[in-house]
Design a protein around this nucleic acid. Structure first.
Length: 157
DNA sequence: GCCAACGTTGGC
DNA sequence: GCCAACGTTGGC
């Protein structure tokens, strides 16, 4: 049983095109410094899970493609690097405070699912991405929601 | 650039 | 443990 997730990224910081250009089309998703997101990485995101890639703070904001988790949660080493902007002295190698996962590019949608479009899809009323004030950068997607998203992406050609 | 919503910090 | 202040996120 694979689960579904949505990862947010500002396209100017790291876009799906950047992922596609990465070695083996794979990257570690580091720099998550929010406890809720951390808990997902540590306890729930598993190898084989499907990830919707979302561009935030861009125009238009949209789900732009799909990736696959290729490595479950492990210690985020940027937290150990004093030169990193993600450095956190409370984290150690033995006792990581922050976690990351690895994802591999799967597909870029021919036409991204824009935020505006998502708001009009029946069945997504409770989708966390669409909820007011939502700021979580790693969020769970239910199987029902995932199927709706995949169907819409397919229909969007 | 603005502002609402949220998470975190720190004083008490 | 409460809550005000602050910093950040993210849509517009």
């Amino acid at each position: 049983m694979c689960a579904y997730w949505l990862f947010k990224s500002e396209s100017s910081v790291f876009s799906i095109a950047d992922l596609q250009k990465s070695p083996k089309k794979t990257t570690c998703w580091n720099g998550v410094r929010n406890y809720q997101a951390r808990n997902f990485f540590r306890d729930a995101v598993r190898k084989g899970d499907l990830v919707f890639f979302y561009h935030s703070n861009t125009d238009p904001n949209a789900i732009v493609g799909l990736c696959e988790v290729v490595k479950s949660g492990y210690g985020d080493y940027t937290a150990l690097d004093p030169d990193s902007e993600y450095y956190d002295p409370k984290s150690t190698k033995e006792n990581p405070l922050w976690y990351m996962v690895d994802i591999r590019f799967k597909e870029a949608f021919a036409k991204p699912l824009t935020l505006d479009q998502l708001r009009h899809i029946p069945g997504l009323e409770n989708f966390r991405l669409l909820q007011r004030g939502n700021r979580l950068s790693v969020l769970p997607v239910t199987e029902t929601e995932a199927h709706l998203l995949l169907a819409q992406a397919k229909a969007n050609t």
